[in-house]
C-alpha cells in the first residue's frame, strides 16, 4: 500500500510541476517511474502515454470551449503525428532499453536547456512568427488550399508540408519516449507555420490525445501497459495537473524553472547511468 500511495504522491508532484512549468507530464513521469520505482523504461513509457492522454484531454476540452485551439489545423497535423506515433510505437519494441534510456537523457538535456532560455517576450501577445498575419514577404508562404483551409482568425498557416514532416517526427518521439510531443509541435506550429503561440500551445494540447493514443494502443496490444502501475500514476497526475492549472497564475515560476533545469540535468545523468547498466 505504501508504494501505491508513494506513486500517487509522485504522480501529483509530476502533474503539479508539469502544469506549473508548462511541461508535459511524460518528461517528469518516465524518470520518476524508472529511477524512483525501478520500472523498465518501456513500461514507464506505456504508463506515461496513458497519463499524457488524460491530462491533454482535460485541458484540450477547456481550450476548445474557450475557442483558443484551431481544431482543423490540429486534425490535419495529427494525421501526421499519428503516422509518426504508429511508426514509433512499433520501433520502440525493437529497440534496446538502454537506447531508450539514452534517448530520454538527451530529451531531458534539451528540456533543461529550453527552461533556462529566456521566455519569448511575445509569448502572450497572440502574435505568430514572421508573416503571421499572412502579409509581407510571401516567398516562403505556401498559399495552398490546405494552408488557407486551416488558417484561423488573424493568421495564415504557412508551410503545411514541412509542418506535416515535423508532425511525423513529433509523433515518433512521442511514441519512443512517452511524451505528448508538444516540445516539438509547439515550435513547429509557431516558428515554422506562423501560428500564434497561444493557439499553437492550445492546438498542440488537442493533438496530443490522438498522437499518444495511437502509440499507446500499440503498447497495450504488445503488453507494454501495466494497469497496477498506470492506475496510481494516472490518479496522481490528474489531481496534480488540476491543482497546477488553478495555481499557475499565482506562482512565480522563474526560480522554479531554474531549479527544475538543474533537476532535469541531474536526472539526465542518472538516465545515462541507467542506459549504461540496464541489461
Amino acid at each position: 500500500m505504501e508504494i501505491g500511495l508513494l506513486l500517487i504522491a509522485g504522480g501529483i508532484a509530476t502533474g503539479l510541476f508539469g502544469s506549473l512549468l508548462g511541461l508535459g507530464g511524460g518528461v517528469l513521469l518516465v524518470p520518476l517511474l524508472t529511477l524512483g520505482f525501478d520500472l523498465p523504461v518501456r513500461e514507464a513509457i506505456g504508463v506515461s502515454l496513458v497519463c499524457v492522454i488524460i491530462t491533454s484531454a482535460a485541458s484540450a476540452s477547456v481550450f476548445l470551449d474557450r475557442g483558443m485551439a484551431n481544431l482543423r489545423l490540429g486534425m490535419v497535423l495529427e494525421l501526421f503525428t499519428a503516422i509518426g506515433a504508429l511508426i514509433g510505437g512499433l520501433v520502440a519494441f525493437l529497440l534496446d532499453e538502454r537506447f531508450l534510456a539514452g534517448l530520454f537523457a538527451l530529451l531531458l538535456v534539451y528540456t533543461a536547456a529550453t527552461m533556462l532560455r529566456p521566455r519569448d517576450a511575445s509569448a502572450g501577445d497572440g502574435v505568430g512568427g514572421p508573416d503571421a498575419d499572412g502579409r509581407g514577404d510571401v516567398a516562403g508562404t505556401v498559399r495552398s488550399r490546405i494552408g488557407e483551409a486551416v488558417s484561423g482568425a488573424g493568421y495564415l498557416v504557412r508551410q503545411p508540408v514541412p509542418g506535416a514532416i515535423g508532425g511525423v517526427g513529433g509523433g515518433i518521439l512521442s511514441a519512443l519516449l512517452g511524451i505528448g510531443g508538444g516540445l516539438i509541435m509547439v515550435p513547429v506550429m509557431h516558428l515554422l507555420m506562423g501560428v500564434p503561440l497561444r493557439v499553437a500551445t492550445a492546438t498542440s494540447n488537442v493533438m496530443i490525445g490522438v498522437t499518444a493514443s495511437t502509440s499507446a494502443l500499440v503498447y497495450l496490444l504488445k503488453g507494454g501497459i501495466d494497469p497496477y502501475a498506470t492506475g496510481p500514476a494516472a490518479v496522481g497526475v490528474f489531481v496534480g495537473a488540476a491543482v497546477g492549472s488553478r495555481v499557475v497564475h499565482r506562482v512565480d515560476t522563474r526560480l522554479l524553472r531554474l531549479l527544475f533545469a538543474a533537476v532535469l540535468a541531474y536526472t539526465a545523468i542518472l538516465m545515462v547511468q541507467r542506459a549504461l547498466v540496464v541489461q
Binding site: M1, I3, G4, L5, L7, I8, F37, D38, L39, I54, D226, P227, Y228, A229, T230, G231, P232, A233, A234, V235, F238
Partner: peptide
C-alpha cells in the same frame, strides 16, 4: 475513465496490492 481508474486504485490499495506486483 478517471472515476473507473480511481475506483480501481482504491480497490487495489484496499486489497494490499502494490503497483509493482505482476498485473
Amino acid at each position: 475513465a478517471m472515476a473507473l481508474v480511481g475506483l480501481g486504485v482504491a480497490l487495489m490499495l484496499a486489497s494490499g496490492r502494490s503497483p509493482l506486483d505482476v498485473a
